[in-house]
């Protein structure tokens, strides 16, 4: 088990290193930051001086090593636009994004799981068809459009919630609903098929023939086992939730990493773009690592130590 954790940790670090390398290569091979930072009429000597300050005059491999050394020290460069350390700027924006993604996940589970169970238990009925059609439509709606529709309905028409802004539970409801709706649809579809598989099992029949009521068979026996594949996918779902947050943040003027990234891209603020990519991929890799490690806890049949020997 210990060896497995170490292996997975190393692998997670390698993944982040891969991301860093890709970002570095893409960035140094396309476009010249000097052209963006300085007006076109700046004399060449001045441009060269600026290049030296930023370390852009050195060979690529030296730049790469310096870049990695800086990263180890937690130095991801300074924002070209705001003059502050890029890492600090990004870390300030992480909590709102995580908050949004977590709330979206909570909503997705709260809607998707019961909907999927209901559809599976009432297979072939009108309820099943309603749930599955809604899930299909939900998966076809871009999250930012869902956000716009929510604003139109809940703010413009009904005037229940503030259209944009950050702070308090009220401002969180609509963005979280928008982000969560897509995942809710996926979770509903997955739960339904997973439940249908489990409901066919012998032990479910046994439980029924013992005379247990439907509720305890469904919740106590079937759902518990149907959850295993669902939980695994939730880790991946969190990634798509964070991706969705990036766009939804722009709709609701939510001060998260996504908006920071979009503004940085617009302003060609490369160090910030780079820091966003590195920080978010690190978070994502860590979350998936966590999911992998807890997987064995959920299902005693899956022992990580055993699976490694196979």
């Amino acid at each position: 088990m210990f060896k497995y954790v170490i292996r997975r940790l190393l692998y997670a670090m390698l993944t982040v290193l891969g991301v860093v390398t890709i970002v570095f290569i893409l960035q140094r091979t396309t476009g010249d930051p000097i052209a963006v930072l300085l007006p076109a009429d700046v004399p060449l000597e001045e441009q060269a001086r600026f290049r030296a300050i930023l370390g852009l005059d050195q060979p690529l491999h030296i730049q790469y090593v310096k870049f990695l050394m800086g990263m180890v020290r937690g130095d991801l460069g300074y924002s070209y636009r705001q003059g502050a350390p890029a890492l600090t700027l990004v870390l300030e924006r992480v909590p709102p994004t995580l908050k949004l993604a977590a709330a979206g996940m909570a909503i997705a589970i709260a809607i998707g799981l019961p909907a999927g169970v209901l559809a599976a238990v009432n297979r072939g009925t009108a309820l099943d068809r309603l749930v599955m059609s809604s899930a299909l439509v939900g998966q076809a709606m871009p999250v930012y459009w869902t956000g716009i529709l929510l604003i139109l309905l809940l703010s413009v028409r009904l005037r229940w919630l503030p259209a944009i802004g950050y702070g308090g539970v009220k401002s969180l409801i609509m963005p979280a609903l928008a982000v969560g709706s897509y995942s809710a649809a996926r979770i509903a579809r997955m739960t339904r098929s997973s439940m249908l598989d489990v409901l066919r099992m012998d032990y479910v029949r046994t439980a029924r023939s013992k005379g247990l009521n439907n509720r305890s068979v469904v919740v106590g026996h079937a759902l518990r086992n149907a959850l295993i594949p669902i939980v695994t996918v939730l880790g991946m779902e969190f990634g798509s939730l964070m991706g969705g947050s990036v766009i939804v943040e722009t709709v609701f003027a939510w001060p998260g990493v996504g908006r920071l990234a979009v503004n940085a891209i617009m302003g060609r603020d490369y160090p910030v773009v780079q820091a966003v990519v590195i920080v978010v991929s690190a978070i994502f890799v860590l979350i998936n690592l966590g999911v992998d490690l807890t997987y064995g806890l959920l299902d005693p049949r899956i022992s990580i130590a055993n699976s490694r020997k196979r």
């Binding site: 970002v23 476009g31 990634g239 994502f284």
Partner: peptide
Amino acid sequence: VDLVMSLPFMLLALAVIGITG
């Protein structure tokens, strides 16, 4: 494949657009 699949896809997209324009 493992590397690409282990990253949030929207983030990758933003990174590429951020760099290439």
